[in-house]
Amino acid sequence: MRTFWLSLALITAAYLLFWLLLLWATAAYSPPEVWLNTVMKPEIRYAAALSLLTCTAAAAIALLFAVPIGYFMARCQFRGKTLLDAALDIPIVLPPMVIGICLLIFFQTSIGRSIEQVISFTYTIAGVVLAQFVVAAAFAIRTMRGTFDHLSARPEEVALTLGATRFQSFWHVALPTARRGMLAAFCIAWARSLGEFGPILVFAGATRMRTEVLPTTVWLELSVGNLDSAVTVSLAMILIAVIVLVAVRATGEKV
C-alpha cells in the first residue's frame, strides 16, 4: 500500500519538477538587465498595454454573456439541454486557428460586412477583443454554470413567494450569492484572453503598434531571432498567469 502511494507521489513530483525546470530555464536564460531593456521598448509597452485593455474588455463582455447563460443552463430544464451544453463547449475544443478563420470568413459574408459598416473588426483592436472573447466566453460560461449548479435554488424560490419576480429573484438573491464565481469567471476569461494567439493572428493580424498583443510579441520577436525579448515577455506572461491563478483560487473556484 505504502509503495503504491509513494509511486504516485514520485510521478507527481517528477511532473512538477519538469515544469519547474522549464520555468527555471526560461528565467535563467537572460540577465535582469535584458528584461529591463525589453520592457522599456515602446512596442513591447504598447503590446502590454493593449493586452491589458483588450483582455479586460473581452473578459467583461464574456461575463455579460456567461452569467445569464450559466444561470439558464443551471436552473432551466428543457429538451435538448445536453445538446446545447455540448454546443456551448465548442470554442473550447476547436483549434484556435480554426476560430480565427471562422471569424475572418464570417466578416466576408453579407451579415459580417453589414456589421463592419457600423464597427470594423477585421485587423483592428475591436477584432482582437472579439477573437479573445470568442474563446474566453466559453470558459466563463462553464465557470458560471458550475457556480450556479452548486448554489441551492431554494432561496431564489423563497424569494418568489416573498413577492419577487423571476428577474428580481435572480438579481437580488442569485447574483449576490454568485459573486465569487463571477470573479473567478472574469479571471479565467481574462487569463484565457491573455494567452490567445491563433485567432488574433488570423483575424486581427500582428501589426506592430496596432494589433500587437503580448503573445503576438513573443511570436514576432522569435521570428526575427530576438530570443531575449521573447523570453522576457514570456516571463511577464507567466507571472501574470500565476497572479490570476492565485486570484481564482482565492475565490474558492478552480481553473
Binding site: P155, L162, H172, P176, T177
Partner: peptide, 26 residues
C-alpha cells in the same frame, strides 16, 4: 402565500434585517 422550506433557505450574505425587509423591498 408564505413558505418556510425545511432548509429555511435564508438568503446568503444578507443580514437578518435585510432578510426581513426583502418582501417589502420587492
Amino acid at each position: 402565500i408564505g413558505y418556510v422550506p425545511q432548509d429555511l433557505a435564508l438568503f446568503p450574505g444578507r443580514r437578518v434585517k435585510a432578510q426581513l425587509s426583502f418582501a417589502l423591498q420587492m
